[in-house]
Write a protein that binds this DNA or RNA. Structure first.
Length: 297
DNA sequence: TGCGTTGTTTCACC
DNA sequence: CGGTGAAACAACGC
């Protein structure tokens, strides 16, 4: 499911393979995915040049011509494929439909054909994603409305000090706090589990007790997990089961399998109504404060 | 067949 | 009132 690393991988593919090309034709097979789109049709991009591919958190931002911008959120099952006329193809995001199979597919909802016969196929098995076409002038305002915190990855990555400020007054589970896109933007369920595992922090502990060296490790681990995801072009997870590459992911999607750090059996629990994977050996639950302890001295 | 899946929104509660 | 947790919602595959 497309989280930040998958979206970043898609952004890089589009930038590299399609920027500078002009749109020849647009096919929208499922118009309802243009939910709340300021411009209710994709037709205006026909004839326009794809000038840049940007990303903010998990939102993909494609700029067309002088003044049009298409925002895309792939939610949990979006997939993007670029296929050139010579047959070369580049696919990232959700692993279904089969990236090596024929396109368009039953769940390919938008097709953007370019003048040089390259085609951008956007698929979404679950149909939870959305497309919004708007004047370029409205982009900042649209992004503001999402109330994103600092980026979780890249040159604009959230600083340790900012993270400390945002966590210190929260008593919700650290995992829940990290998934709050207004705290930091772009971390999702897969990579938060991996970052907490790397930092050896139990996902259920209160956010305000993650301090000092532990918080430092967490900050480093967030960057590490997302970078590892980008390096691999997205984690390989099919039907909620992970297929680790180079030991990553180490816990997410691996319930009942050995932790790739220590060999203990990976557990699955629920935190904030999210499926949560952890290694109880690498990420011990801190001793609950007992009345006896609290009263002693 | 009901469950799991994400991000967003809404609601009850203290 | 704000912080919190839980539920509803979008839709589909297994």
């Amino acid at each position: 499911m497309p989280e930040l690393p998958e979206v970043e991988t898609i952004r890089r593919i589009i930038e590299r393979e399609l920027s500078g090309q002009h749109v020849d034709e647009v096919v929208v097979r499922l118009p309802k995915l243009l939910r709340n789109s300021p411009i209710p049709s994709l037709d205006p991009i026909v004839g326009q040049e794809l000038v840049s591919a940007r990303r903010r958190a998990k939102v993909l931002i494609l700029d067309f011509g002088e003044d049009l911008t298409l925002m895309i959120h792939l939610k949990l099952a979006g997939q993007v494929a670029v296929i050139h006329s010579d047959g070369r193809r580049f696919v990232a995001g959700h692993p279904v439909p089969d990236p090596s199979g024929p396109y368009p597919h039953k769940s390919t909802h938008v097709e953007i054909r370019f003048a040089a016969d390259s085609v951008l196929y956007i698929s979404d098995l679950r149909q939870f994603g959305w497309f919004r076409l708007m004047p370029r002038t409205e982009v900042d305002q649209a992004l503001d409305s999402f109330k994103f915190g600092p980026e979780a990855f890249g040159p604009e990555m959230v600083t340790l000090d900012y993270l400390r400020d945002r966590l210190i007054r929260r008593s919700i589970p650290i995992k829940t706090a990290l998934l709050d896109q207004s705290v930091l933007a772009g971390l999702g369920n897969i990579y938060v589990d991996e970052a907490l595992h790397r930092a050896r922090i139990h996902p259920a502990i209160s956010a305000n007790v993650v301090t000092g060296d532990s918080l430092n490790s967490l900050h480093e681990a967030i960057g590490w997990a997302l970078n590892e995801g980008v390096r691999q072009g997205g984690a390989k997870i099919v039907h909620n089961k992970a297929y680790p590459v180079d030991g990553f992911p180490a816990v997410h999607g691996r319930a009942g399998e050995p932790c790739l750090n220590c060999g203990a059996e990976v557990e699955k629990i629920r935190i904030g109504s999210r499926g949560t994977y952890l290694c109880a050996v690498c990420q011990p639950e801190p001793m609950p404060a007992k009345d006896g302890n609290r009263n002693r001295r």
